[in-house]
Simulated assay, not measured.
Amino acid sequence: MSPQQKALILLEKQGKFEVGSRSIPSPGPGQLLVKVQSAALNPVDYKIQELGIFVEQYPAVLGMDIAGIVQEVGPGVGNFSKGDNVLAHCEFSNDMAAFQQYTLTDASFTAKIPSHQSFDSAATVPLGLDTAVTGLYGEHFGAGITPPWSKIGGDNQSKEPIVIIGGSSSVGAYAIQLARLSGFYPIIATASPSNEKLVKSYGATHFFDRNLSGNQLKAAISKVTDSPIRIVYDAISLPETQHIGWELLAENGTLILTLPATVKEDEGKGRKAIPTYGAPHVPQNQELCRGSWAMVEHWLSEGTIQPNKFEILPNGLEGIIGGLERMKNGEVSGTKLVAHPQDTQ
């Protein structure tokens, strides 16, 4: 019989979570088996439970973000060894999901953790960073800007403004940091006033209260820059924030969204609204995300990319259930919730 592990299992579509047992999988070609030390929560996790989206097979294990220790290396993997501390972006697949004590990862979307970073901080990176990457640089799910790690990238957007709505969210925080890497200026971000210092620490050059109306925000931004705003990254993407972002956009500009578009593209002005999709595993994103994942260890080591602030949930996998409820109720701001699967009783 295969060795067993504890996992947080969604028993049926739109059903309840329960801690149970399942087999520890073995890595195939290009894969690693990782002992999960830290698993971060994301809004998509409660939306899967609530709306029944993305997952077809039940019982299901959810969770996208992990950090842990490599236990086994699959065939064809040359850049990782047993005992390496790593972070990785998981998949909608029970053997490759985060909310369990051991999971498989794709070596292409796994990176080593620098010695000065903890498992908890590293676990906050994968989905948020990938969503920011695909939104800004993706040809299919984004604005198609040249990535800063490509040979012709770097300062290509120099002195162009960008607006990031929801700068204290996980995706917003990484979008700000990537905008800085791409040479945008000014980098204008909105968030709650209590998160102003945090948002500026990520690299926002100008901060505005998220409660400003569209007209108030437009007037405030006009005092910062008279350049046309061709990129707005709406990391919140509720109908009201999409409307504000749409109003800020110049002709032929792009509004990047993390949820389906509620604004309508208008051919007269050529503005586009593009819902991004931050999964590195889908064919449209694989090449782009291989490029960004090759940079993750370096970025974290140099401090170029700062992980999110985090809060540790108690009671191992069991604690995830209450954490997802808090996120659903809007009780978490500027902070990533992180669970320790190995602490499960």
Score class of each variant (00 low, 15 high):
residue 154 G to C: 03
residue 148 P to D: 06
residue 173 A to V: 09
residue 178 L to D: 09
residue 144 G to L: 11
residue 152 I to G: 09
residue 182 S to N: 06
residue 188 I to F: 13
residue 152 I to Q: 07
residue 191 A to C: 08
residue 173 A to K: 03
residue 152 I to E: 15
residue 162 I to C: 06
residue 148 P to L: 06
residue 151 K to E: 13
residue 183 G to I: 09
residue 142 G to K: 05
residue 174 Y to M: 14
residue 156 N to Y: 13
residue 156 N to E: 15
residue 166 G to Y: 02
residue 155 D to M: 11
residue 159 K to G: 14
residue 149 W to V: 07
residue 180 R to Q: 12
residue 150 S to L: 10
residue 175 A to G: 11
residue 167 G to H: 07
residue 149 W to H: 07
residue 166 G to K: 00
residue 187 I to C: 04
residue 171 V to L: 00
residue 158 S to E: 12
residue 175 A to M: 13
residue 153 G to H: 13
residue 150 S to V: 08
residue 191 A to P: 14
residue 172 G to Q: 00
residue 161 P to Y: 04
residue 176 I to T: 08
residue 189 A to L: 01
residue 145 I to V: 12
residue 147 P to L: 12
residue 175 A to T: 01
residue 139 E to C: 10
residue 182 S to M: 13
residue 191 A to S: 13
residue 162 I to N: 06
residue 159 K to M: 11
residue 164 I to W: 03
residue 165 I to G: 04
residue 185 Y to P: 00
residue 163 V to W: 08
residue 167 G to N: 07
residue 149 W to G: 01
residue 177 Q to A: 01
residue 148 P to N: 06
residue 164 I to M: 03
residue 147 P to C: 11
residue 142 G to I: 06
residue 181 L to N: 07
residue 147 P to A: 12
residue 162 I to V: 14
residue 150 S to E: 14
residue 191 A to D: 06
residue 176 I to F: 04
residue 151 K to Q: 15
residue 162 I to K: 12
residue 168 S to A: 15
residue 179 A to S: 15
residue 181 L to M: 15
residue 186 P to F: 01
residue 171 V to Y: 07
residue 175 A to I: 01
residue 156 N to L: 15
residue 178 L to P: 08
residue 151 K to T: 13
residue 156 N to D: 08
residue 146 T to P: 12
residue 151 K to D: 13
residue 140 H to S: 15
residue 183 G to A: 10
residue 186 P to H: 02
residue 190 T to G: 00
residue 190 T to P: 06
residue 162 I to S: 07
residue 160 E to I: 03
residue 176 I to C: 03
residue 171 V to A: 05
residue 147 P to T: 12
residue 151 K to R: 10
residue 187 I to M: 05
residue 184 F to Y: 12
residue 164 I to S: 03
residue 175 A to D: 04
residue 141 F to E: 10
residue 172 G to M: 05
residue 188 I to Q: 09
residue 155 D to K: 10
residue 150 S to W: 11
residue 140 H to F: 11
residue 139 E to D: 14
residue 192 S to H: 04
residue 188 I to A: 14
residue 144 G to C: 10
residue 177 Q to D: 05
residue 177 Q to K: 11
residue 180 R to K: 15
residue 177 Q to Y: 02
residue 148 P to R: 00
residue 192 S to M: 07
residue 143 A to W: 06
residue 187 I to E: 09
residue 185 Y to C: 03
residue 189 A to M: 03
residue 169 S to F: 00
residue 179 A to Y: 05
residue 143 A to C: 04
residue 147 P to I: 10
residue 169 S to K: 00
residue 141 F to T: 10
residue 183 G to C: 14
residue 154 G to R: 00
residue 179 A to N: 11
residue 144 G to F: 08
residue 177 Q to P: 04
residue 151 K to M: 13
residue 191 A to L: 03
residue 184 F to G: 02
residue 188 I to P: 02
residue 179 A to Q: 02
residue 156 N to I: 14
residue 150 S to N: 11
residue 156 N to A: 14
residue 166 G to D: 01
residue 156 N to S: 15
residue 186 P to K: 01
residue 160 E to R: 14
residue 185 Y to K: 03
residue 155 D to Q: 13
residue 190 T to H: 08
residue 160 E to C: 09
residue 191 A to W: 09
residue 152 I to F: 09
residue 157 Q to L: 13
residue 150 S to M: 11
residue 146 T to C: 11
